[in-house]
Design a binder for these strands. Sequence first.
DNA 1: CTCTTTGCTGGATGATATCGACCGGAAACT
DNA 2: AGTTTCCGGTCGATATCATCCAGCAAAGAG
Lengths: 146, 146
Amino acid sequence: MLDDIDRKLLGILSANARISLKELAAEAGLSSPSTAERLRKLDERGVITGYTVDVDPRMLGYTLQAIVRVRPLPGQLHIIERMIQEMPHCVECDKVTGDDCFVARILVRNMEELDGLLDGIAERAQTSTSLVKSTSVKRRLPALLP
Amino acid sequence: MLDDIDRKLLGILSANARISLKELAAEAGLSSPSTAERLRKLDERGVITGYTVDVDPRMLGYTLQAIVRVRPLPGQLHIIERMIQEMPHCVECDKVTGDDCFVARILVRNMEELDGLLDGIAERAQTSTSLVKSTSVKRRLPALLP
DNA sequence: CTCTTTGCTGGATGATATCGACCGGAAACT
DNA sequence: AGTTTCCGGTCGATATCATCCAGCAAAGAG
């Protein structure tokens, strides 16, 4: 599916997506046009789904990060899902197997704000909250298999 | 801290970090040089920590995604943390409060692979695994406060 | 063996980033 | 108030980069 050069391109881009095409090509040992063509195809095939910026939440005033497991009460699942989606503090949420239906990552400025958010859904769901103390593994690509 | 234009720049970049400076400037209603200068400062201040590529794990052969809570046995915390960090399947891991010390996001090709990974740490930690069925909220920026 | 397809390169051209000079407004001194 | 300084901005020239095109080589199909 992916060859060595594709993997190399993804690796380089994951470290710096705003690198110039020329540099990217040089690091991958390719010419600019073929590099551009490979990127286009990776995009087209859906391997690359986008390019984004990483921002330090603390620099935005979000000093607290929590991982919240949400177990909606019977009949409340869809409402809860929509509430989570519309909550701007939620920066990531997955629907998972098991008793906890959702696992969400929440950013807040302080405890009061977190408390307020959880209160807002308390009537429709049980929640288990873990505060993030530190990040052991910063988001990264998995091993790129052949 | 951040003004309206900074927020706009972050918003645009979070949607497409490889946009040209010129387009970025146009969308933000600014000239290219001042846009470049603002990016430089956002970088310098640590607001922007990097630019990355988003990749579809399924396109890399990772058909299964799991969120694993890890509770190391007494005395095993550091070893477990290192083992997680060195596990290429782990694409994200936070150290959290509560009984579960770590919450990790794991990518695997199939159940056997997941089983193998969990077996690998079973002697040193208890784990609770939730398989990701779907993504309710794709990773995004939180509300950008003034 | 030839034809076709695919993926690459190099060079020309058009687009973009960057640099320097300059400008105006706000805050800080005198 | 007047002056100075600083900050953030624009504009235009130049250097750098992305893209287009023609041509080539290797691999697979007929």
